[in-house]
Amino acid sequence: MKKSIPGTENVVMEIRDMQIFLAVANEGSITRAAEKLEYVQSSISIRIQQLENELHTVLFIRQRQGVQLTTSGQIFKSYAEKILALTQEAVQVVSDRSTPQGPLRIGCLETTAAIRLPNILADYHPSYPEVDLTLKTGTTDELTKLVLKFELDGAFVAGPVEHEELETTVIGYEELVIVSGGQHLSVEQMEELQHQTLLVFRIGCSYRQKYEDWLNAKGLRPAKIMEFGTVDGILGCVHAGLGISLLPRSVVERANAHYKLHIHQLTESAFNTETLFIRRKDSYVTPAVSELIRIATEKFNG
């Protein structure tokens, strides 16, 4: 008689169980997970309870305003993410007909999405209509974490990015410049920068970190920092004279058609920054990914 591995006799979880578990974990709420998956809330609760019974552990702490992962839940989440990523990869590999197709989850910086990505997708989408591409914008730190957690197949971020589990491809370079609303400003007179409000993306933005590191190295600090979620929000407030920002020259030059902006060039090599495409080293490079990298590199440097 065949013997089962001790402790696994009653474990019959399905891929869908892990998808439900991850939806609840990521949403922090059974109600929101049910809405996202278009399931009845009671069904989600039953599946989670069955999963906990099979694993002989509590995965979530139930609270009035939602749920929170237990230690066991956090451990199981990391495995569930890997299992689902490998499952999707297996489907892609066995069905790979060398033509880009299927789902492709890509991350992108706000600035890259505003200026570079439209030209890239204008070539990519008509050429490969069978690719179901979804896009998420965020900071370099946010996108890097999502790639590591298998939630994105890859992302366009600002370099440098160094992680033993990631492979990076240089797509092109961006020159970062200080942008003001047309008022007189001297980069050589550093004390002027110290009195300016810095308009930036949230923490995790590599451009913001470069600027703050640069000022710190000179013993200076910005008078005030205002955080924004979009490029247009930053540019509009710079135009209105509320402060200055550090942005790619390509973004500022394009925006000059709508805003009154002034570019202040920086001579330090640190402000000539790489745009990278990052992905997990252990992930399968699908035709959809390889073609996106190829087209992005051509468009970026064309």
Rank of each mutant, 00 (worst) to 15 (best):
I83H: 05
K36T: 09
E14P: 04
L276Q: 02
R32M: 07
P160L: 15
V94A: 15
I225W: 00
T112E: 11
L51K: 03
F150Q: 02
T273K: 14
A90G: 09
A255G: 01
F271C: 05
T87S: 10
E9Q: 13
A25T: 12
L152A: 13
I120T: 11
A34D: 11
E291S: 14
V238M: 12
K299Q: 02
S98A: 15
E162D: 15
Q68H: 09
V238D: 02
R249T: 09
E38P: 00
R47E: 02
S127L: 04
M13C: 09
H163N: 11
Y207Q: 08
H195F: 09
A114Y: 07
P6Q: 06
Q65I: 04
F300E: 01
H56G: 03
S269C: 08
L148R: 03
T230V: 02
P248I: 03
I234N: 04
V179P: 00
D96Q: 05
P248F: 00
R249W: 07
L55F: 08
L247V: 12
G7C: 03
Y259C: 00
E291V: 14
W214L: 04
R208S: 04
L37V: 08
E54I: 10
T140W: 06
G172W: 11
L276S: 00
E191L: 13
P103N: 00
A33S: 06
G204A: 03
I5L: 11
E167P: 08
F60M: 02
C108E: 10
V252R: 05
I120P: 05
T267V: 15
A240S: 08
T197K: 09
L133H: 05
K36E: 06
E38R: 07
R64L: 12
T275S: 04
E38K: 05
E191M: 15
A296L: 03
F201H: 05
A257N: 13
T197A: 07
R208M: 04
I61C: 03
S283V: 00
Q88P: 04
M1T: 06
L22S: 09
G28M: 06
A155H: 06
D132N: 07
A255P: 05
I203M: 08
T71A: 15
I295Y: 04
E174T: 11
Q41F: 11
A270Y: 14
A155M: 10
I120A: 04
V12W: 15
Q74A: 11
S206W: 12
N216W: 13
Y284D: 00
K145P: 08
H56V: 08
T70L: 12
A270T: 14
Y173R: 12
E298G: 14
P248N: 08
G102T: 06
V238T: 13
A114V: 12
E298V: 14
E81P: 01
L84W: 07
T297Y: 11
H195P: 01
R279D: 03
K299Y: 04
